[in-house]
Design a protein around this nucleic acid. Sequence first.
DNA 1: TTGGTATATCGGAAAAAGTCGATATACCTT
DNA 2: AAGGTATATCGACTTTTTCCGATATACCAA
Lengths: 99, 99
Amino acid sequence: MKQLEIFKALSNKTRLEILQWLKDPEASFPAQIHAGFEVGVCVGEIQKKAGLTQSTVSEYLSILQRAGLVESTRVGQWTYYKRNEAAFEELGKIIQSDI
Amino acid sequence: MKQLEIFKALSNKTRLEILQWLKDPEASFPAQIHAGFEVGVCVGEIQKKAGLTQSTVSEYLSILQRAGLVESTRVGQWTYYKRNEAAFEELGKIIQSDI
DNA sequence: TTGGTATATCGGAAAAAGTCGATATACCTT
DNA sequence: AAGGTATATCGACTTTTTCCGATATACCAA
C-alpha cells in the first residue's frame, strides 16, 4: 500500500466526488443497460456527471486505480469502475496506527 | 475537517516523514534543553533532520498545521510542533465511513 | 471490412506545489 | 538599545499536476 500515491490520488476535488458517487451508484447514476452496478459504473456516465472531458476522467480513474482505490472490469466496449472497499478499510487503519 | 486540504498536506514525502518523527520524538531527535518533548519539537531540529532549508521546513509545518494535523506552541524564541492525534483518529474514521 | 461507439493515451498550455535564498519579525541577552 | 538566535514570510525559479483537444485502440454491428 503506497501511502504517498494514495494521498495524491485523494488530493483532487473531482476524484473525491467520483469516489462518493461510486459509494451509491443507484442514487448517483441512471440505470445501466449492459451491466448491473455490482460490476461498477461505466466511464461515460462518470464523465457526464463530472462535467470534465472524457480524457480527463479516464485519466482520473486510472490514477484512482493505480492507487488501488478502485478496480475496473471490461465488458464489451465498456469499462466499469467500482470502489475497492478493502483499500479504504486498510487505509483508515493505517492512518490510525502507522501515519 | 477539510478533507482535501488534509490529503494535500499528506501528499509529500518529507511531510509524511516529519509526522513519523513526531510520533516518537525521543527516538528521533536529540534531547531538548528549553522544553520537553510533550510540548513538541522545535523547527530547527526538524529542519536538520529533514535536510531541507529552514524556509521550506517552516512552510511544511504551516501546511501540516493548517490541515489540523499538528499544533504549535511558542516558548521563548522557539516554536514547538507536535502531532494532533485526535485529527488522525478522526481522519481514519472518516476514511472508513465517509470517503 | 467498414463504420460507430467507448475508452485510453499522447502532447501541450496553464495552474499549483516544491524549494531555495534573502529578508522580516520576534524574542532573548547583555 | 544592540546584537544574536529562531522562525516566518516573500519573491523567484523549477517541477508537478490539472485539464484540454487530438489521436489511437478496442470492441461491436451490419
